[in-house]
Amino acid sequence: MSPAAAGAATPSARVGIAALARNYSGRLAGWGLAWLGAVVLAQVLVAFAPGDAIDTLPDPALREQLSAEWGLGTPVYLRVFRGTAGVLAGDLGSSWTVQPGAPVGDAVVGAMCASLPVLGAAWALAVGVGAAARGRKGARIARAMSAVPVVLLALCVPGGVNALAWKGMAEGWWTRPAFFALPVEGGAVRDLLLVGVLGLGSAAMAEVAARLAEADARLEEAGFLLAARAHGADERALRRLRWRHRVVPLVEAAQAVFTPLVGGLVVVERLFARPGAGDLLWRAVELRDVPLATGVVVALTGTTVVVGASLDLLRRAWDPRLRMGA
């Protein structure tokens, strides 16, 4: 390329980056507002659930003192306002009933460290298998596999594994394996099962497969594959071309399925009796521990926002048309 041609390319790239930044700042603001909305909504929902934290304690004599301490006598909007302000200032407070007095930040960090690897692995599994199952037939199979509710799987799988282990012990195939008596006996096997149930049992895999199948269909209709073939492109080149065009729908699919997986995490952690953010959120809601529930929601929605925003950025960086705001 001549120096003139090279210089002619730079202004359009600068325009692309500027457009990306302009578009993206709007999206980022949207993500931030969604996160804030989730924090507010979580507090509102727990506040309006029947009963308060004080109701989980048996003695009515405690009511007055703890109501004052926890601000349960103040109007809901004021409690939510103060709670949200605290979150924005970085003060998550301390747990009321689940781990009385324990700083919420410490509890949440510990729980997230336990959950994130599992969530990430399940997500990767769902996206990977969904991508491998692309195509109409694959998408149908993936949908069929996802038809069994996650809850049922989470209930049945440990039982099935235990029954097999019990039989093995009775037949003398092995002595007591470490993974036996799930879900009480933890360890790698339980985590792998949890990842499998969450990744394969949720609708995420089917969603990814369906989106990719749709994208492939659009790709065929677009006609440029035909044109590339006509220009002498071999199968390898055509495959590369297909995958280049699949990246964006794949990223969009991955982005779309992450949030439902977070919801599924709450269920499977509870059913597998595995301590983590989902289990902690369940306990916090059950015991109406508003600071702890808020803290977990802050962390989980924050993670969703970071993942979503990052994938969004990746998507735009990959596809020049999106950078231009198309």
Binding site: A49, D55, T56
Partner: peptide, 13 residues
């Protein structure tokens, strides 16, 4: 069916 908090609130209080 009520959990502990709802039971205390709704039934007892």
């Amino acid at each position: 069916f009520l959990d502990e908090a709802a039971w205390r609130q709704q039934v007892w209080t």
